[in-house]
């Protein structure tokens, strides 16, 4: 017996089935402003199932299943059901997408030009994209940037932003608390709250932009800016892409084109104010 939820995010439609109503209610709230899959057919199916019949009721434990699965995926507690759904949806895209080159990067757009930010978990790329999305940029996504190989354009995938640990307090300085979802404490990734993107970002989630600048942010270090040579950018982006090898020659061409066309910088920053100032500076230098 499955409770169902569907949603369209950018070019991808999802169907989530859950053995429990909790995660579905949370998804309904978080994605209230999003449209449903256009012709009623989702791209990917995700299932949240009890690991065994007993664990539906006793200390409920959520197994993450779906079209694409990791054999060694660790079950989560029902309290973290929303996170499980989000992870499962990301996994479908990461493993299943073949049309776009997928970069593990956040992205924001201004005047039709796109700023891409990529880095390890904790680099601040998520928080930066969410902040920029409140300050005159169009938020395009905090998790994946979708590059269309044939055109080189970046397409939005504006999921709710997953804010971790101290990023929650930081974000609350800039946005109304009503836009933040329930706090999930002690997840494998720390304490997490989801942020609803601006409605503008959702309304325009079909609009692509031209990549113009790539940043490798690192949080927690003294202010520093270093240009990154194309060869290094290439290697780092192959690692940041979940489907680069699956795309074969198309992936190689998409990535080499991107790397040769746009400048890239590594930026270190001790706080968000410094980061935002750096972004403004580097963006102004482009034109």
């Amino acid at each position: 017996m499955m409770r169902a939820f569907t949603v369209q995010v950018g070019p991808v439609g999802f169907r989530v089935g859950s053995a429990w109503s909790g995660p579905i209610r949370a998804l309904d709230w978080l994605y209230a402003d999003y449209p449903k899959p256009a012709d009623g057919i989702p791209d990917f199916t995700v299932r949240l199932e009890p690991v065994s019949a007993l664990r539906r009721w006793v200390r409920p434990s959520v197994a993450i299943r779906g079209d694409f699965m990791l054999p060694d995926a660790v079950p989560t507690s029902l309290a973290h059901g929303l996170l499980a759904a989000e992870m499962a949806m990301n996994l479908q895209v990461a493993m299943g997408e073949r049309r776009f080159l997928l970069l593990h990067a956040s992205s924001v757009e201004r005047d039709g030009k796109v700023l891409l930010m990529t880095g390890e978990s904790g680099s601040g790329k998520s928080t930066l994209s969410a902040l920029l999305g409140e300050k005159g940029w169009r938020f395009m996504g905090d998790e994946f940037a979708l590059i269309e190989p044939e055109t080189g354009l970046a397409f939005p995938f504006p999921r709710p932003v997953s804010l971790k640990n101290e990023a929650v307090a930081e974000m609350l300085r800039h946005v109304a608390a009503e836009r933040l979802g329930p706090e999930m404490v002690g997840t494998p990734k720390g304490d997490i709250r989801h942020l609803k993107p601006p409605t503008e970002a959702i309304r325009r989630m079909g609009e692509s932009g031209k990549p113009a600048l790539l940043l490798f942010p690192r949080f927690g270090l003294a202010r520093d800016v270093r240009p990154v040579p194309p060869s290094e950018v290439f290697v780092r982006l192959t690692q940041a892409s979940t489907n680069y090898t699956m795309l074969g020659e198309r992936g190689f061409e998409a990535l080499t084109n991107l790397v040769q066309r746009i400048p890239a910088c590594a930026i270190d920053y001790p706080d968000t104010e410094t980061a935002l100032a750096l972004v403004d500076e580097l963006w102004a230098e482009l034109t």
Partner: peptide
Amino acid sequence: ETAARVLDRARRAAET
């Protein structure tokens, strides 16, 4: 249209 998109992915995956 969506079914076509899903099938297109599968076709590409099979080709790889």
